[in-house]
Design a protein around this nucleic acid. Structure first.
Lengths: 227, 227
DNA sequence: ATTCAATATCACCGATGGGTGACAGTTGTC
DNA sequence: GACAACTGTCACCCATCGGTGATATTGAAT
């Protein structure tokens, strides 16, 4: 980088409009862009300010520092899948499905949603690595979301199974495989760079759900609704 | 830190013995110590040299840089569970178990092994976050190990299941939950800070394996051998 | 004792990080 | 017009990073 400080302005065409609110949103958006493009390691006062084309001191002034900015970003950002998305588009149709089918489809939809959301992936990765003022903030938001989902969709304490534990296993596996696949395609004998591998994982999860919830052969290749 | 550069020597009592081999091992051990104590983010030329109580230029001289040092560390470090450990101590006894029992116990043993190995956790976390000269090096070692395990222990292409995919799910879930639990104890409604939660996960995995491999009720609370 | 290579230390470079105080331009109010 | 409040810029501080060239210390061969 031979360019100087002012070069930051190149990136954002509009000149900072001497407008507090506009500058605030510029900064919040800069966090998202930086997360998606460079990953959470790049998220720092200097980098965010540079990305927004704004002086870093404004982060202190308007947000009280990076913690405040991250918090605002977490509140406004819609990087989590919606209920509707997890239900595959039609919540009513979804709710009328039998339990195993419902769980299986929700899992598939969650996996697809996560794979399409680089920012969400970045946040999950971040949470795995360090606990700091940023990640604790973001974790609370994530936990609330997960909680709402299971409460709305999965009221199943029937059977002899531990849905919380099984859910943690499936959810953890999805998070792990998606996050990891950004850097390494190979995991065991799967090539996570190929759609074929993801379909195998999807089917395997479906198989797990169905054999857990009702030990009987599962309907073949019914991929179900998806948003 | 008000102390100066030379303060590094405080940490390692023995004066650097003007001995190339000894210095090399000091550096390699410093990597492991630093990984365990501070995490991979702290692993850099400066920090490692400081930890070893040695000048950083020796890393360039003896290892050609950090990449070389990490590679040597990866080769010598025994941070992966051994075959024997995964088998629960007695390989022969282990191999004579029925398939589902074998898989279930190996999974439990792997989880316990990983939970006891902070350095291994750190490496897995590192691999999730970035791909660089260090992690690609370490990933090759990890993949080879995993490969050897499944080949030796799990020759099962029977049944209508996809063992690679199911293995990736279980393995991914273990890696995720263990790594994540270092920073956040809560995941969904589980409290990963408690042994109780881990036992629930263990049982859930056992339930998954048994219902996958042979759809019939599983033996209750048989924890099996463990190293 | 001198020479020479190996071992290890030191001092410095440029880049980047988070953080802060002083200053400049704009706007509205009295 | 004078003034204060607000928005934004700039210049600097100190710490750490990876990296390198010059130098000191040791030990062994001659």
């Amino acid at each position: 980088m031979t360019i100087k400080t002012r070069s930051a302005k190149i990136k954002s065409s509009e000149p900072p409009a001497r407008n507090r609110e506009a500058t605030r949103t510029r900064l919040i958006e800069a966090v998202g862009n930086l997360l998606a493009r460079e990953g959470f390691r790049a998220v720092g006062i200097n980098a965010v300010a540079r990305e927004a084309g704004v002086d870093k001191v404004l982060i202190y002034r308007y947000f009280g520092g990076m913690k405040g900015l991250i918090s605002s970003f977490g509140q406004e950002g819609n990087f989590w899948p919606t209920m509707k998305e997890l239900a595959g588009g039609d919540i009513d149709a979804f709710m009328s499905l039998p339990l195993a089918e419902r769980a299986s489809q929700m899992i598939s939809n969650f996996m697809h949603s996560l794979r399409k959301r680089p920012i969400t992936q970045e946040i999950l990765a971040w949470e795995m690595i360090e606990q700091n003022e940023f990640t604790t903030e973001l974790d609370i938001i994530r936990e609330n979301m997960m909680k709402r989902f299971v409460e709305s969709f999965m009221p199943c304490d029937e059977l002899g199974i531990d849905t919380d534990a099984e859910g943690a296993i499936i959810g953890g596996a999805i998070n792990y495989l998606v996050i990891r696949s950004r850097n390494f395609s190979r995991f065991g004998s799967l090539n996570l760079g190929t759609e074929e591998a993801w379909e195998r994982i999807e089917k395997a999860m479906r198989r797990i759900i169905f054999s857990l919830i009702k030990p009987q052969p599962l309907p073949e290749t019914d991929r179900g609704v998806r948003g």
